[in-house]
Nucleic acid binder design. Structure first.
Length: 565
RNA sequence: GCCCCUGUAGCUUAAUGGAUAAAGUAGCGGUCUUCGGAACCGCUGAUCCGGGUUCGACUCCUGGCAGGGGCACCA
């Protein structure tokens, strides 16, 4: 397989530097904002002039002379501009060849080999049984699914994992609520139990008792209260079924296994594991006020409790256990964990402790924290009952899509409506960088115009519609002289995918697709694609290449491309 | 008080130390003789405040200010 053009250009720069007897710094290429500055630009001359002295422009001229001698077929022109930038202009043939390549590659278009042969496990979503699947989980799911797909596109074998809190006070609250009010849903039972826990001493006492009971039954001591355990299993199974339905809807679903995730981990297991591991490593942990703690002070971290004074594992010990559990069940090269950023500090402590127990395992763990999805009123919380469930959000947005669609004659299939609604929601989550919060304004956040999921889907369906009308679109013979702007974007797709995967940042893909769709829409507005000019077949091929790129890109965001909308 | 994250047009967000800071939305003005108007074109509008490093800073360092998160037996 031919190397990506960006690699070829880098190579040619390196050879030029070598011939000139210069040292070779890290070379990176950028796409200049202004097309007058070429398709790629390099600042090596500026970098070298800085480290070794000399005039950057003169240096650039020398480098260019060597590059020109190499006669790269894809490069039409190389020149020096500005302070000493080397600008590369790609040839007409390169762009046409790329269109051909897209059509040949189809669903494979955009893949890279960065992680070829690697095994990667991605953990995300992590909803807790007995509680509602809220929009925070939706956010984690959207991000995790996209990252999983990006990693798959980079050549790795990906396993999806979800880690769920099936023990702890929240479970006891739900169980207590359900026992008092057998007819309400689990989510509601939890909300009510949580409220009473704060309000009434008696309730608090009973809930703590239930918590202990569950723990003891799980830790092998058994329990006399058979009905409580039955209710517990029932609730867990019920949650599982509910979650699976949502995963299917969201597109996190493996047809082969018939489940959303390849691996499910539970705190009840990771807790047992973690407790044992902590106890086996007294050289790492220490006793303090009756608890077992890890002192992170040396590394500028907090001291955190791993086993509480009752000997029960906390979040930290469970996370340690989880790391070993994952490695045992599916040894991988990279374990990615997607979580909210409120636990970054804890995660650092966990990793610091793990490093001393098993440095190799700790090395393989990558924590990707994301911002929070907040409501205008404040933090998302299921404790106060002030929550928006994923289900209700999808329903609400679907309703609006339906209204919008009823203005049209065709296509009111539920499937399409949901694809658009979920596309809108996912896009609003994935269009921005991982770090910052999203303020979720019910009215504005999910728009159908401009910078939105439906905008991307719409551009794709337009292209699809033209292709349906035209029949064949595989003729890349009569190439027009002028390079069309879309061509200058299309070839960049694999680079974008690779970068997004490398940095675990799906928003690079989202931003790129938006630019691409906008360019297509502009072109579409002023250019007739199906006409009787000799260029028409090429324009059709270009339309098909655009459509393929949109489909692959949207797939990477976990968004479906409807045929009509 | 200490630690971490974030401050970019009115609002929501882009920008790999690089060339004139890019979009969407809101506002104003256009395109309606269509291969699909959820579209297209134009105008208005921004790097929180000081200092520093650099040929070059939204980006790196430093001091403030503002917002969020975290600071031992919850997750």
């Amino acid at each position: 397989m031919a190397a990506m053009i960006v690699e070829k250009i880098k190579q040619s720069i390196m050879e030029a530097l070598k011939s000139l007897g210069l040292s070779i710094p890290d070379i990176y290429l950028e796409h200049p904002a202004d097309i007058l500055h070429g398709d790629y630009a390099s600042n090596v001359a500026l970098v070298l002039a800085k480290s070794q002295g000399g005039n950057p422009r003169e240096l650039a001229e020398k480098v260019v002379r060597y590059i020109v001698q190499q006669q790269l077929e894809e490069v039409e022109k190389v020149d020096v501009a500005g302070a000493g930038f080397i600008n590369f202009f790609l040839s007409r043939d390169f762009f046409a060849g790329n269109v051909r390549k897209i059509l040949e590659s189809g669903e494979e278009w955009g893949k890279n080999k960065m992680l070829l042969g690697k095994k990667v496990m991605v953990e995300y979503t992590d909803p807790n049984p007995f509680k509602e699947f809220h929009i925070g989980h939706l956010m984690s799911n959207a991000i995790g699914e996209s990252i999983a797909r990006l990693i798959e596109f980079s050549g790795a074998e990906v396993k999806r994992a979800s880690y769920q809190g099936d023990v702890g006070l929240h479970v006891a609250k739900a169980l207590w609520g359900k026992m008092k009010k057998p007819n309400v849903k689990w989510g509601e039972a939890y909300g009510w139990g949580a409220a009473k826990y704060e309000e009434e001493e008696e309730a608090k006492k009973e809930i703590r008792e239930i918590n202990k009971e569950i723990y003891e039954s799980l830790y092998g001591k058994g329990s006399k209260k058979k009905d409580l355990l039955e209710l517990y299993s029932e609730g867990k199974a019920e949650s599982f079924r509910e979650f699976e339905k949502i995963y299917k809807k969201l597109g996190t679903f493996n047809e082969k296994t018939g489940t959303g995730f390849d691996y499910y981990y539970f705190e009840s297991y990771s807790g047992v594991y973690g407790k044992r591991i902590v106890e086996e490593h007294p050289e790492v942990f220490e006793q303090s006020e009756g608890a077992i703690v890890f002192r992170g002070g040396k590394e500028g971290l907090h001291t955190r409790v791993f086993l509480n004074s009752e000997g029960l594992p906390t979040y930290e010990a469970k996370e340690i256990g989880l790391a070993f559990l994952k490695e045992e069940r599916h040894p991988a090269d990279i374990f990615v964990s997607i979580t909210g950023n409120e636990i970054v500090e804890y995660f650092k402590v966990v990793l610091a402790a793990l490093r001393r127990i098993n440095a190799k395992l700790a090395e393989k763990i990558v924590h990707i924290p994301h911002g929070m999805l907040r409501l205008p009123s404040g933090k998302m919380s299921s404790r106060t009952g002030d929550i928006v469930t994923a289900e209700s959000l999808i329903d609400e947005v679907s309703k609006r899509v339906k209204e919008k669609m009823s203005e049209r004659a065709t296509g009111k299939e539920q499937e399409t409506i949901e694809a658009i609604a979920i596309g809108a929601i996912k896009y609003s989550i994935l269009k921005q960088g991982m770090g910052s919060d999203i303020v979720f304004d019910f009215e504005k956040s999910v728009s159908f115009e401009g910078d939105s999921g439906p905008y991307l889907q719409y551009a794709a369906t337009r292209a699809h519609s033209i292709l349906g009308r035209a029949g064949s679109a595989d003729n890349v013979e009569r190439v027009p002289k002028e390079v069309i702007e879309i061509e200058r974007l299309l070839y960049r797709f694999p680079e974008i995918v690779e970068r997004a995967a490398r940095e675990y940042e799906p928003h690079y893909v989202a931003t790129f697709l938006t630019e691409l769709a906008g360019t297509f829409n502009s072109w579409y507005a002023k250019e007739k694609i199906i006409d009787d000019t000799p260029e028409s077949p090429y324009k059709l091929a270009l339309t098909k290449a655009f459509h393929q790129t949109m489909m692959n890109g949207l797939f990477l965001l976990g968004i479906k491309t409807p045929e009509r909308m």
